[in-house]
Amino acid sequence: MSERRAAPTVLQISLGRRLRDLREVAGLSAAQAGERIRVAQSTVTRLEGARTSLNYTTVKALLELYGVTGSEARDFLTLVDKANESGWWQGYSDVLPGRFGVYVSLESAASQIRSYEPQVVPGLLQTPAYCEAVIRLGFPRESDESVRRRVALRLQRQNVLNRPDGAPFLWAVVDETAVRRPAGSRAVMAEQIERLMQTADLPNVALQVHPFAAGLHRGAFGPFTLFRFPIPDFPDIACVDSLRGTAYRDESAEVELYRSTFEHLMTGALARRRTKGFLEALRKEYLR
Score class of each variant (00 low, 15 high):
1 M>H: 14
5 R>M: 09
12 Q>F: 04
14 S>W: 00
16 G>Y: 01
17 R>C: 03
34 G>D: 06
37 I>R: 05
38 R>K: 15
44 V>R: 00
48 E>D: 03
49 G>Q: 06
54 L>V: 01
56 Y>F: 11
59 V>N: 00
59 V>Y: 00
68 V>M: 03
70 G>S: 07
76 F>H: 04
77 L>F: 05
80 V>Y: 00
86 S>I: 04
87 G>R: 00
102 V>N: 03
106 L>K: 01
107 E>Y: 03
107 E>W: 04
110 A>F: 06
113 I>W: 06
119 Q>K: 13
121 V>E: 06
128 P>N: 12
131 C>Y: 03
135 I>L: 15
137 L>V: 11
140 P>L: 11
142 E>V: 09
143 S>K: 08
151 V>D: 12
153 L>R: 01
159 N>F: 07
162 N>Q: 15
166 G>S: 10
170 L>K: 06
173 V>C: 03
174 V>N: 06
175 D>Y: 06
176 E>V: 06
176 E>W: 08
180 R>Q: 10
183 A>Q: 09
187 A>L: 12
191 E>L: 11
197 M>P: 05
198 Q>R: 14
201 D>L: 12
202 L>S: 08
203 P>I: 14
203 P>S: 13
208 Q>I: 05
209 V>H: 02
213 A>K: 12
218 R>Y: 09
228 R>W: 05
228 R>I: 05
229 F>A: 01
229 F>V: 01
234 F>E: 00
239 C>H: 09
239 C>A: 13
241 D>L: 10
242 S>I: 10
243 L>N: 15
244 R>S: 15
246 T>R: 11
249 R>E: 12
249 R>S: 10
252 S>I: 13
255 V>W: 05
256 E>A: 15
257 L>Q: 14
259 R>D: 11
260 S>T: 15
262 F>L: 08
263 E>V: 07
264 H>V: 03
272 R>Y: 10
273 R>A: 13
279 L>K: 03
282 L>D: 02
285 E>K: 12
285 E>Y: 07
